[in-house]
Computed example of a mutant assay.
Amino acid sequence: MTGGARVGDDRVTIPFDGRRIDIEIAWVRPEHAHRTDRPLVVFLHEGLGSVSMWRDYPRMLCEAGDLRGLVLSRYGYGRSTPRPHDEKWGADFMHRQAREALPALFDALEIGPGRRHGKPWLLGHSDGGSIALIHAASFPDAVAGLIVLAPHIVVEDISVRSIAETRRAYLETDLRTRLARYHDDVDSAFWGWNDIWLDPAFRQWDLRPLLPAIACPVLAVQGEDDAYGTMAQIEGIHRYAPRASLLKLARCGHSPHRDQPARLTEAAVDFITTHT
Rank of each mutant, 00 (worst) to 15 (best):
R20W: 07
D22G: 15
A26K: 14
E31V: 05
H32E: 01
A33N: 09
H34G: 10
R35V: 01
R35N: 07
T36Y: 00
D37R: 02
D37S: 13
P39M: 05
L44A: 05
L44Y: 10
H45V: 00
G47W: 06
G47H: 13
L48G: 01
V51R: 03
V51M: 03
M53L: 15
R55T: 07
R55E: 14
D56S: 15
M60Y: 08
L61R: 01
L61T: 02
E63F: 05
E63I: 07
G65T: 11
D66S: 14
R68W: 03
L72T: 10
S73T: 13
R74I: 06
Y75F: 14
G78N: 10
G78V: 12
S80T: 14
S80H: 13
P84I: 15
D86L: 06
D86I: 15
D86G: 13
K88G: 04
G90I: 12
D92V: 13
D92T: 13
F93H: 15
M94L: 15
Q97L: 13
A98Y: 10
A98R: 14
L102D: 06
L105E: 09
F106L: 03
A108L: 11
I111N: 04
G112P: 07
P113E: 12
R115I: 01
G118A: 07
G118P: 04
K119M: 08
G124T: 11
H125C: 08
S126G: 15
G129K: 09
I131Q: 14
I134W: 09
H135Y: 12
F139C: 11
P140W: 11
D141P: 12
V143E: 01
I147C: 09
P151L: 06
